[in-house]
Amino acid sequence: MEVVHVENLTKVYGSGHTAVTALRDANLVARRGELVAILGPSGSGKTTLLTAIAGIIEPTSGRVCIGQTCFYDNGWQVRDLRRFRREHMGFIFQSHNLVPFLTARENVLIALQINGVTGANAVGIAQQLLDYLGVGERQEHLPEKLSGGEQQRVAIARALANSPQVILADEPTAALDTERGKSVMALFRQIAREKGSAVICVTHDQRMIEGFDCIYQVKDGQVSTTSQK
């Protein structure tokens, strides 16, 4: 069953002489429980593709569907995109993007709280996720007191907090050592399998490619090759 369906997605930045086509007629499909990689050199358009799937940038044309809902079909189809995001997506980005004035645990809790999960239940989930990612003992520390790898693991915990349909990750293992990276990928696979989430990763990390179910190559805005394992 398709969880993410991208069809003929085009994104043009600017207009007239300064127009730059970042994506041209891109197509992508991610099914329940699949790990999908988006590969490509810098500036190829892979992050544009990821942010378009996330509904963060508005595509120029095409169609993006999550589950049964096509939230973009040559125009926004969903009024409250933020709500749609928090209910269906989890995010892990290259810059660790933790709220600096919240502790590691609170960074996970805030995602749960925004989605209506509060109290002991929320604390339990946060604790479990942080322990699982190996940062349970650091849960009371502010991000500035955590190493880059620890910050990334907290960001992953936050993305997983609401058991989203889709996890969108931009270089999620870049700041982790091989062992931790593999364990994160294993965690992604587990989440994908147990929750039916699709995980879409933009990555350069050759160490992790072997774990993906499906790989998309992006070059000059075109999703030109698709390799399926």
């Binding site: 996330a54 933020r82 709220v99 925004i114």
Partner: peptide, 16 residues
């Protein structure tokens, strides 16, 4: 601004 953008990204409503 960055934490606020992040809160929006993870779906925080405007009232938050």
């Amino acid at each position: 601004l960055k934490p606020i953008a992040l809160l929006k990204l993870i779906g925080a409503p405007n009232r938050t």
